[in-house]
Nucleic acid binder design. Sequence first.
DNA 1: CAGGTC
DNA 2: TCTGG
Length: 347
Amino acid sequence: MRQTVKALKPMIEGFIETNGELSLKRTLKSGQAFRWRLTNDGTDWVGVVRNTHVVQLTQQPDGKHIHYRVLNGHEDNDHNQEIKPTVKGRKRLKTSDESDGENPKDQYFYSQLISDYLRLDVNLTDLYDKWSKSDDKFAAIAVNMSGVRVLRQNFAETLFSFICSSNNNINRIEKMIETLCQKYGKVLYESHPELGTIHSFPEITRLAEESVEPELKKLGFGYRSAFIHRSAKTICDEYKCPEKWSQELAQMPYSEARQALQRLPGVGPKVADCIALMALNHLESVPVDVHVFKIAQHMYLPHLKKNKSLTHKSYQEIGDFFRSKFGPNAGWAQAVLFCADLKQFKQ
DNA sequence: CAGGTC
DNA sequence: TCTGG
């Protein structure tokens, strides 16, 4: 019964093996996702996976496992019909009164969900080795920058998050996205002791409503207010089913997807590349921001030092250089170098 | 000046 | 160019 499930507040948790190939801090707090928060005196990360599941992740002392806990129930969960709240203790054995197969099935579902989000299927050791062999500079940086992963994120959240990112800093981007979720998202989890009520990211159809632009202006979104509303409206008008469109963009060749994305207001080359890399599985996409521009100038392409700012031509040149150096997953290599360049990860 | 875009 | 440090 649904009421029973709600009342019992199912607690699903377990461990996922990472083979030492995941740094939660470097992955969740390196500016690709903006909604993960450190809680419990700096030990646990809390965020939203697949825009439905409020998940708490903890890096284990052995460095080779993460513990996960799904904090919210199963309202609006269309993946499973009914899940019995059988998991309480860690690695608890099944008791005789529990029906066979239910508990492992749930754990499998959630560990798969989280592993998919973190792209744990990708062997990061192999990638780091390959990139280090083809570039000494990368190798020198990578030894102190292990476990940087490119997340597999939602399309809509990535799109509107990076529209907000233009000419902006990470702190303010996080605040703006939180505002979007609180104002237009649905409640996923109520009254977290440190984070308060946790909301989903808004539906595109919600952001397409006429009232959104003036409301966002009032909330301090500046010129991004119009970009957000007009992009949402364009998607709803032209593509009807946003989910289907994102699947089509993922199927297209990278350059075509990039071109299609740039038809949206507020989406230029850099934002389009972020979406392609983080939400459409186009791992050859190399978003070139000021950080990557400086990295390219100092480490690889010294002739660009004469350029004061990024031009269309130098943008293309840097992306092509990364792809020629690091291959089909160049965007991921860029993410590692970018992470190393952020203030918070220096030394 | 901050992870650009029109 | 919006806006906050």
